[in-house]
Amino acid sequence: MLSQPLFKDILCRDDFKSSAGGAHCFPDLRVGVFEEIVPMGIDPKKVSYKETGIHLSPQEFHKEVEQHLSQASQGQSDTILLDCRNFYESKIGHFQGCLAPDIRKFSYFPSYVDENLELFRNKRVLMYCTGGIRCERGSAYLRSKAVCREVYQLKGGIHKYLEEFPDGFYRGKLFVFDDRYAICSNEDVISACRHCAAPWDQYSLCSSQHCRQLVLACPRCRGEGLTACCALCRDKERAAAAGQAPKEECECTRRRPRVPIERVSQGTLADEKD
């Protein structure tokens, strides 16, 4: 149990976010007690949430991003705009000019930082995530490496930013972890169908019952039966139909390394399939 003063300090009115939806968006909703809401894989006692970056309001963050983009266009920025979410989240929506690590899980974030320390050396880092939760741990871990000049984080995350700046520097959809998969504040579509490359940003689950990968497949391609995330998963479906035991690991998972090479974007992510 959290002590009452600490509970009040963590759960203030500003921490609650609302969006259109309903009970049907959360068919498997459960309530539990966990040491970390989003596990980073590092003992909280070793990297304390009390050592986070400096919190910036959406208005302050907006000004910082505006300045960063202006300076970056002239090759003069000493700032890194860091997206600490997973690759499938940043793929459908991100801040312009961001650095979006190609990671599958937040628990890979520490390894990413460790492998790219020189990238952050003497830099100002503006960090953001969906609702500000991952930044609490991610910014503390980055600060613990003592390489950055300054570390800031967006208070309330992208969600709060979009409430203030629906047409600001964040383009595309905001990925959410329920049956909606994404919510939007602008009309930009920054990703594409993995099969035909048509603009598309609505995720669906791979049709293979042995896979939980998210797939960007447009209605036309899905109508043509392209509902699996990769050729191996299509083979899985055929094998399952024939009563054969399929392989557990698909191509999408197998070829994505634990510590990937970072990629920097000035508006769009690298052209890569899921």
Rank of each mutant, 00 (worst) to 15 (best):
Cys148Lys: 03
Tyr141Met: 02
Phe165Val: 13
Ile133Asn: 06
Glu150Phe: 09
Ala182Thr: 04
Ala228Asp: 08
Glu150Asp: 15
Ala245Met: 12
Asp178Pro: 08
Cys221Gln: 13
Ala146Ile: 07
Ser144His: 10
Tyr128Met: 11
Ala192Thr: 12
Phe165Arg: 08
Cys135Ser: 09
Arg143Ala: 11
Ala197Phe: 07
Lys173Trp: 01
Tyr141Leu: 03
Leu214Trp: 10
Cys229Asn: 10
Cys250His: 07
Tyr152Glu: 06
Phe169Ser: 04
Leu162Met: 09
Ser208Phe: 07
Arg220Ser: 12
Ala241Leu: 14
Pro166Glu: 14
Ala197Gly: 09
Ala239Phe: 06
Cys184His: 03
Ser139Ile: 05
Cys148Asp: 04
Glu164Met: 13
Leu214Tyr: 13
Cys148Ile: 06
Gly225Ile: 14
Ile183Asp: 00
Val189Thr: 07
Ala239Ser: 12
Cys184Phe: 05
Tyr152His: 11
Leu226Cys: 12
Leu232Pro: 03
Thr130Arg: 00
Ser191Lys: 00
Lys173Gly: 00
Lys247Gln: 13
Gln244Asn: 11
Ile133His: 07
Cys252Leu: 10
Ala245Ser: 15
Asp178Ala: 13
Lys247Met: 11
Arg124Ser: 10
Leu205Cys: 10
Trp200Tyr: 02
His210Trp: 08
Lys155Cys: 13
Cys193Tyr: 02
Leu226Lys: 13
Cys193Ser: 04
Asn186Met: 06
Arg149Asp: 15
Glu237Cys: 11
Lys160His: 14
Gly243Arg: 09
Glu237Gln: 11
Ala217Tyr: 06
Gln202Ile: 12
Pro246Cys: 09
Leu154Val: 11
Arg194His: 12
Asp178Asn: 12
Glu163Val: 08
Leu117Phe: 05
